[in-house]
Amino acid sequence: MSRRTRRRLGQAALYTIATVVLLYTLFPFVWAISTSLKSGSAIFDTALIPPDPRWDNYVEVFREQPFGRNILNSVIVAASTVLLSLALGLTAAHALGRVTFRGRALLLVTVLGVSMFPQVAVLSGLFELVRWLGLYNTLPALAFSYLIFTLPFTVWVLTTFVRALPVELEEAAMIDGASSWTVLTRVFLPLLAPAMVTTGLLAFIAAWNEFLFALTFTLTDDRRTVPVAIALISGASAFEVPWGRIMAASVTVTVPLIVLVLVFQRRIAVGLTAGAVKG
């Protein structure tokens, strides 16, 4: 085989693999869109392009259950979680990234350790706490409990970014008499904005997708968040799972997320890989 044909074969193989990868990653979602547009018995038709596309499933998912309310709940919970974890993460990152004190390394490892907690390991303790605080079946219970998985990576990523900032900036400000708080809000905040967008986005996605706490700490349909609502969609009888509606609900909440991720894909890659590459 000549060098040229080998090269061509290699290229062909590469493009074939690329196509297979494309199919593998995208097909399930494409299939969900297809199913969501089929109504009635058309749902059992396995044509990829619906012969008679209809919006019925989308209308029904909002009519048969408080799905609009569920979306609003998810937005409220995820946004609150993001704000809380950014506020707590920023102040802590300032201290952890800049000030040397005894036990700092231990503290950072502890924070990282919290991210290893299985959610179910804190479930009964949190449930007790949530009920004791009178927060059972309320959204604050979720926004607050989600800090257990958003805080660790928020603190870690922001600390990494604080360390990368030049020390001279804040020293100049402090010599001019600025307090630590002023330095934090006037000097750090603007410089850390990109990092905060990244971590905020990751925290939003994590909170938006959370299932176990939402399933356990809420009871009524109007307090459910999107993942629980989608998991619990049921038909008139147990044998009649309304797949069309499930797919319509899934597509509705996933499209904005996919758009978000694609728009910010570079930032997300940075957030996920921060530190990992340096090993």
Binding site: V21, A32, P227, A231, L257, I258, V261, I268
Partner: peptide, 16 residues
């Protein structure tokens, strides 16, 4: 495209 499955909520992936 590779990022899409990551962006889809776990519950949604499970249902799909």
């Amino acid at each position: 495209a590779v990022l899409v499955p990551w962006a889809i909520p776990t519950v949604v992936s499970a249902q799909l």
